[in-house]
Design a protein around this nucleic acid. Sequence first.
DNA 1: GATCATTCATACCTCCAGGGTATCAATAGC
DNA 2: GCTATTGATACCCTGGAGGTATGAATGATC
Lengths: 300, 300
Amino acid sequence: MNDLEVRQLRYFVAVAEELHFGRAADRLGMAQPPLSRTIRDLERQLGVALFERTTRQVKLTGAGEVLLRDARTALEAVTAAAHRARHAGSASPRLRIALKADIDGGLLPQILDAYSTDPAALPAELVLGGFGAQPQALRDGLADVALVLSPIDDRGLDSEPLLTEPVLVAMAATDPLAARTQLCLADLAGRNLPSGAPADDGRTAPPPPGATRPASNLSEIFSLVETGSIVFFAPASVARRNPRPGVAYRPVSDLPNCTLAIAWPQDARSPAVAAFVRAACAIAVAHHAQAETHMQSTTA
Amino acid sequence: MNDLEVRQLRYFVAVAEELHFGRAADRLGMAQPPLSRTIRDLERQLGVALFERTTRQVKLTGAGEVLLRDARTALEAVTAAAHRARHAGSASPRLRIALKADIDGGLLPQILDAYSTDPAALPAELVLGGFGAQPQALRDGLADVALVLSPIDDRGLDSEPLLTEPVLVAMAATDPLAARTQLCLADLAGRNLPSGAPADDGRTAPPPPGATRPASNLSEIFSLVETGSIVFFAPASVARRNPRPGVAYRPVSDLPNCTLAIAWPQDARSPAVAAFVRAACAIAVAHHAQAETHMQSTTA
DNA sequence: GATCATTCATACCTCCAGGGTATCAATAGC
DNA sequence: GCTATTGATACCCTGGAGGTATGAATGATC
């Protein structure tokens, strides 16, 4: 009957993710008994069992799984409310653009140019984040608009594709495979990928104890590629803008293309967001047309 | 820095809607001083002014307006989490279908028939609500899927149009206008509409002191129509299924068509919802095709 | 199969924060 | 200038959130 409280949802999500009251309490920075009690009260309040627990095992019930999903989105909505309000109240409102460094298809400068001429434009501010962090930044109210690689988890978001391009593999120029002009994924079996790369699951994979720090910037990654320690998948635009003597880019026949898209919260009402989306789409169309004519001129 | 709490958001929304601390406190069933204090703390916590207040007037700041919007959706998400979890834990899971009585375009029985043959179907349960209440029922987790009249506020919802039909005006058969076969809106100026009808704003319009209880069912409305107290806008399907001697239906030239649509929460994952949506779309397509052939046969 | 370790639940205590009452202060209206 | 209205302040009190100590149940081990 009574409302749920944010605290209850946070605690529930912690337990549901850890499936262990002790560890969850630890993560929440509190003792285990009050956590157990809060979960018990929550179950009473809802009139529903959320966990099946023995002293040896905790697992989610069906209702628990439903609540986990909804609790996460509810918590996102609450933190987004706080972040957006803080931002809206700040003296200098800005358009916060979330993206992963270097993953902009080379379009960002032109988009920013076109955007800045729009009368509704606010000063832009880049919010850099790791791979896949952009949708979350939108949902949490830390950014107003984002450049992302599709497909993304678009719950609560709207998006528009901008640019589709092939994905190349970057490997040491000395790699035997670099001698070939065409590869497939099977050829790459056994090669290392940089930690934090798209292939990682991210949520479930715990960092292996002896793992090196995830290399998050291109320079570090290219150093590793040059030495042959890893191979790396890069969209064609990234490859084009990062020619390096020791690095060879090769197409991979069975690797799907990747699509750069622009995304924003579905309920965004800000004219600055609209202006940026307009600018991005216009630049993408222009870019597409240019590629077309280029292809025609080269085939002719 | 710290999380917002549901209580803070509820209080904030109450004040933002009333723009009066005393009335808001009243509505919340509490005294005014702790409410003022909570709002003050909330503003400190966010580092943002949410209201401009003098002792005589309270109004929202820009940040306040942003927060009002986001707070409403966050509160919806929280209550939805509670309702969905309760429902998921109930012994007999059902597909809860929200609709306004009589507004189903006459398709509901066929849709239910088709739906019930789907292996993923759960027993259906109708959730009846007033005009415009269906999207809210979806957002609050009180229903799983809804039949609505477009356009709706579809934040957080997905929808699919099923059926577009003209809107007729229902008036007393004795009404002078009933003698005409074609009307426009201007002809109806000055006529009363039933309270609670689409034309009402709903949120901002307070019920006038002497107003009669909103007639929420068709029988009551038709009684009033027959006596000439009101006129009433009804989709053609409603008119077709409710022929009454004392009531005349007439087309209105400048009244836009209305569209019946099916809507569901954007993040719905339930196979029963998917089955119902499939069934509804299939019936709509069949209905459309049937209308086509009917038109061809009549024009031929 | 007896012992032990692990882990969730229970009992009890403490303290803070959310709510109430009384009152002040500022502003608009007459 | 007086009064009514309304938000802010001061102060108190109680409920509930969190901590500690401990119990109880289950799986593992020898």
